[in-house]
Computed example of a mutant assay.
Amino acid sequence: MQMKCLFALPMIALAACGTPQERCIMTASEELRTVERLMAETEENLARGYRLEQELKPGFELRFCHHPNGYFHWCNHHTTRVSEVEVAVDPQAEQRKLDALTARRDVLVQDYGNDLASCEARFPEG
């Protein structure tokens, strides 16, 4: 019997809501999905000639604060802003990274076929 969940949360919750076979398949494909995501990022970086990195910038905001005596006043509130910064990439290094990820993905695809068969054998759906 397939268990259904009434809430929508990230992958962890989805994995917890699936059948044992679905959870097994999700676990078996986790590294493959990560490598494919990294390959897509690397291909984008090669096409653009730069990568985007997040930079944290601390700062202050002026806000109304409540004083214990019951009145409001202006006060500084610490904040952190996130911005994206363009960073140049070395095309040869990015291509080597992409080649290594492609080789890793090829191995993982072969392993995934075996893991998928194992999941289906261990947890047949009925």
Rank of each mutant, 00 (worst) to 15 (best):
V109Y: 01
I25M: 06
R23E: 11
V89M: 03
L62F: 14
E41G: 10
E43M: 10
H77G: 00
E86M: 07
A47M: 04
E120W: 00
R48N: 14
H67E: 14
T34A: 06
D99G: 03
G126N: 12
G18A: 05
R104G: 11
K97A: 13
E41I: 05
L9W: 14
H66R: 08
C17N: 04
R33D: 15
A40I: 05
D90K: 09
E43S: 14
R51Y: 05
T79K: 05
A8V: 12
M3R: 10
E61S: 11
T80E: 08
L46C: 00
W74K: 08
V89N: 06
E53L: 11
L101M: 11
T27G: 04
L108V: 10
Q21T: 13
V35E: 09
L52Q: 15
Q21R: 09
L6H: 05
V87D: 10
C24N: 06
A16Q: 09
A88H: 07
E22N: 04
A100T: 14
H67D: 12
E36G: 04
E30H: 08
G18W: 02
L98D: 15
E36I: 06
E53I: 15
F72V: 06
F64W: 10
R122T: 15
L6W: 09
L62V: 14
T79S: 05
E31K: 01
E125R: 07
R81K: 15
L52K: 09
R23H: 13
M1D: 06
E86T: 12
L116F: 15
N69L: 09
Y50E: 07
E125W: 06
Q54Y: 15
P91Y: 13
V85K: 06
F7M: 03
P124F: 00
S29R: 03
Q110S: 12
C75V: 11
R51E: 15
F123P: 01
C119S: 06
R81A: 14
M11T: 13
Y50N: 09
A47C: 04
D115W: 10
L46M: 00
E22G: 08
M26I: 00
H77A: 09
K97G: 03
L56G: 03
R104A: 11
M26L: 02
Y112V: 02
M3I: 14
Q21F: 08
L46G: 00
L52V: 15
K57P: 01
P68C: 01
P10L: 11
Q2L: 07
R33K: 13
H66W: 12
T102K: 05
T102L: 01
H66V: 13
T34I: 08
D90L: 06
R48D: 15
R96I: 10
T34E: 13
A117G: 04
Q110T: 14
N45K: 02
V82A: 14
V109Q: 11
S118Y: 08
L116Y: 14
L6P: 01
